[in-house]
């Protein structure tokens, strides 16, 4: 069971990222919980400087941009 967190304060790019992650998790059937972290203080715990970011099992995998499909597939796989 993977734990995926999407960090972002609700900007358009963060919403795109969330939608993409949700779609790919559904598509691949990977077992994962998806969590949106929108509070800036919580986001800063991950020591990132640009949003959106994708955290998989507490490890920052993507930061500062919307991931590409193939990138996410690789990370989920």
């Amino acid at each position: 069971m993977k734990n995926i967190k999407i960090l972002g304060t609700g900007c358009p790019k963060c919403k795109q990222t969330t939608a993409l992650v949700e779609a790919l998790v559904k598509e691949t059937g990977v077992e994962a919980t998806i969590e949106k972290v929108e509070d800036i203080m919580d986001i800063m715990q991950y020591n990132i400087m640009a949003t959106p970011a994708v955290v998989i099992d507490e490890k920052v995998a993507i930061k500062g941009r919307v991931p590409t499909r193939s990138e996410l597939l690789e990370l989920l796989g």
Binding site: T9, K13, C14, I40, I43, M44, N47, M49, T51, G64
Partner: peptide, 12 residues
Amino acid sequence: FCSCSSVPLFIG
């Protein structure tokens, strides 16, 4: 940077 990142950037 995208303006929505200005806060994390500032804190960083």
